[in-house]
């Protein structure tokens, strides 16, 4: 009696696990059909729109923007050159750039796609013994040919240096914490945090950007983004079951 109850319970648990895992993959799953159909080779990253109060954030962000996308296998137009050319064309304000027709922007460079980034968070909360740095970015990739949205993602990251030392001397720990917090206050680590955010935004499975033509996985990563391999194996299992039933 006890044993069957235990088995029942564990089966129930197992079922819940399966359901839960299905649910999360369903939520996480993006539609990559438009992205795949566009078969992009190049990306034009335009200056970021700034929703933070730090006026330097867009330039600092730009210095970290090209590498992760290029490392995904795309030609990324040189970000600083692009910024200057767009400014020379009279679009010195990032809000104007983001409001402009992506087809026209892409046409200036003959780019396949345009990446628009909005800086949602770029701030540091100071306290005596800890400082928390937060960044959040919204990324939208649009086709340079049709102007339609091909991909979008949001990335939030925060960082609090671990200053809770364990030297066994509470006073020394307190001083150490204050020093760590002061260092972070003097130079908040926006750049490493932004580099990580960009890397996660474009490199994460099921929500990032699939490999481009200069990457060895170009055209071979459907399992990592659409989860197609799993679907196929499920379909195979189902058809096998049907055959057995017949």
């Amino acid at each position: 009696m006890m044993l069957t109850q235990k088995i029942k319970f564990s089966v129930l648990c197992l079922g819940v696990f399966f359901l839960a895992s299905c649910a999360t993959t369903d939520i996480e799953k993006k539609d990559y059909s438009k992205f795949r159909a566009a078969d992009l080779k190049s990306v034009l990253i335009v200056p970021a729109v700034n929703k933070s109060i730090d006026v330097d954030a867009p330039d600092y962000f730009l210095s970290t923007a090209a590498k992760p996308l290029a490392e995904r296998g795309y030609y990324v137009f040189p970000v600083h050159l692009v910024k200057r050319i767009i400014e020379d064309d009279g679009l010195s304000d990032a809000d104007l750039v983001h409001g402009a027709d992506p087809v026209i922007l892409a046409g200036l460079f003959n780019a396949d796609s345009v990446l628009y980034v909005s800086i949602e968070r770029w701030d540091a909360k100071y306290a005596v013994f800890s400082t928390t740095v937060t960044v959040e970015f919204n990324y939208v990739l649009k086709s340079g040919i049709t102007g339609e949205e091909l991909w979008q993602n949001t990335q939030y990251l925060e960082y609090t240096p671990d200053s809770s030392g364990n030297s066994g001397n509470p006073l020394a720990d307190l001083i150490a914490s204050a020093i760590v917090a002061a260092i972070e206050k003097a130079a908040p680590s926006y750049i490493p945090l932004t580099q990580q955010a960009n890397g996660l935004a474009v490199g994460s499975k099921f929500r990032g950007i699939p490999a481009g033509p200069y990457h060895s996985l170009y055209g071979l990563d459907q399992a990592d983004f659409e989860g197609i391999d799993e679907q196929e194996s499920e379909e195979e299992q189902e058809s096998e079951e049907e055959q057995v039933a017949n």
Binding site: D56, D59, Y60, L62, S63, T64, K67, A70, E71, G73, V79, H80, I191, Q195, Y214, H215
Partner: peptide, 16 residues
């Protein structure tokens, strides 16, 4: 895939 050297930090410093 590529050699970036200090491109990112140098561009950051240039903007700064």
């Amino acid at each position: 895939l590529y050699s970036w050297g200090n491109y990112e930090s140098a561009l950051y410093k240039y903007y700064k």
